[in-house]
Amino acid sequence: MREEITPVRPADLIGEVAKLKIQGYRLVTLSCTEIDANCIDVLYHFDKDLGLKHLRLTAMKAEPVPSISPVYFAALLIENEIQDFFGLKFQGLVVDFQGMLYLEEEALKTPFCKFSIQTAEKTSAPSIAHAEPAEPPAAAMPGEPAPGEMDS
């Protein structure tokens, strides 16, 4: 990457982000990559006068990450998307879609996690005739992978 990347710890995240907001940075987006069965790499991209700045957070899948949506409202959709795709939980989201932003019940859970999804992929063959409940139950949380599922 051409620009500098500053590593941050989950505890310092909100403070660092708030500092950048005061300096006049605009939140561009968050990029998320799965590293291994336990870790997820989250990159926060910020922009000021067409220059980019990145923060790198290495998050554990099982532990929720503090949400930056109270600081930058624009992070709301991005964090919900990561919650859908990677099952990483965010604490303090302004609007929490409970992992239902994009995905329906029958679509596979956390589709971007290569390490924990191998077994689920085969079993979740979509069936059209299957009658589904009109309102997906709010308790169904694809966000948090079960410990056993993660190891497989």
Binding site: L103, A107, L108, P111, E121, P126, I128
Partner: peptide, 11 residues
């Protein structure tokens, strides 16, 4: 892709 059911004829 994972969220694609297929052609229209499936529905």
């Amino acid at each position: 892709a994972y969220n694609v059911v297929g052609g229209i004829h499936k529905v």
